[in-house]
Design a protein around this nucleic acid. Structure first.
Lengths: 202, 202
DNA sequence: ACCTGAACACCGTTCAAGT
DNA sequence: ACCTGAACACCGTTCAAGT
């Protein structure tokens, strides 16, 4: 009954969802308060009734991007398997929308969004080790996806390393990004297992 | 003989070094082309003779921040020890200037600066494993330092988790950030070792 | 409760022209 | 080689006022 676009008045959630759509369509640099307001057929100042400032609006968008993480079930899994599953799903969430990794990266750094993975049950592992592993996985996945997504954007613009810029990844051989990603993710998970085993001995 | 500040004409390097000083003094949000130009006693448009745009100027600043990485000697070290040493030194570089982690994070994602660590000799380990480990360490360290540095900035402004924002790190117990950092770093390094050992068996 | 109108104090970038 | 002057096309945010 209630269409998101046709009503003249909006909710906080409408604003965030419209912003997410604009992010995916036009990218983060074009996600301005003025463009969001235009899409909602509203003046920019109206957005400040719903959100304190742009950063908290972006934090709400980050929350939408990370929402599917709540549906990842890890019951019955060993801690290491949870780590790999959650890391993979986090990457999926970030690659699902244009520039999502960059946006989530800054919302996480600002502490404006709940960090994924680390709040999960660690399957009985020592809390500090689980915490360290979850943090390592989160930062790795976000950073990797950020880099990955920028390469996609650059490639789609047809500009490939002109002149004095560095050219990372070109000498990576024939491995796909997904392969390198999961190899690194598995390594962190193995390190977690090794740390747990070492702790058990002491 | 040649002072950086007093001469009327500047080099590309002068500009980058002045920008780094301003970054450290005032933070990334205030690092505008206009402020950089003011510090050099020059009009903003003059900066565009030295740099194609703001992003490439920021990439040069990132290069200065990461420069000490070149002096880290890893000859004679095992691959795992190199990984831990390089990760620790990378953190030192990023924490040495205000907001450096955020700046380097985006320059790395944009591929405008040479990624640290990954270009180093891997001590005879399989190239793909070394590459995955170096990438994991880099993204973890940058992401962790980014988060750490934002907390420092927030704390120095006296605003501690007001209202609906998340509050990460508060339940971490009595472990310092440096402890959690090196625990996670060690875990990645152990995972690298485990992956190498497993590869050797197959 | 939700939005408009109007203003404030800024941005990055281009480019002809100067020396 | 290095910079100025002037302009263009934008930003985020505030706040009194409307309905």
């Amino acid at each position: 009954m209630t269409s998101v676009e046709n009503d003249r008045r909006h909710s906080r959630d409408d604003v965030a969802r419209t912003a997410l759509r604009l992010l995916d369509e036009n990218g983060l640099p074009d996600l301005t308060m003025r463009n969001i307001a235009n899409a909602l057929e509203v003046r920019p100042s109206a957005l400040y009734w719903h959100f304190r400032n742009k950063q908290s609006l972006l934090a709400a968008v980050s929350g939408l991007i990370l929402a599917p993480m709540a549906d990842v079930g890890t019951e019955g899994l060993a801690a290491r398997a949870s780590l790999e599953l959650l890391g993979g799903r986090l990457r999926d969430c970030l690659l699902a929308y244009r520039d999502a990794a960059e946006l989530v990266s800054s919302s996480l750094a600002l502490g404006l969004v709940e960090p994924p993975i680390v709040g999960r049950p660690g399957g009985g592992a020592p809390a500090d080790l689980w915490r360290a592993a979850a943090t390592a996985v989160m930062h790795f996945v976000v950073g990797y996806a950020f880099h990955e997504q920028q390469r996609l954007a650059a490639d789609s613009l047809g500009l490939l390393a002109d002149a004095d810029g560095a050219d990372p990844g070109a000498a990576a051989g024939d491995r796909s990004p997904a392969d390198e990603f999961s190899e690194a993710l598995t390594m962190i998970a193995m390190g977690f297992d090794a740390a747990v085993a070492q702790r058990a001995v002491l």
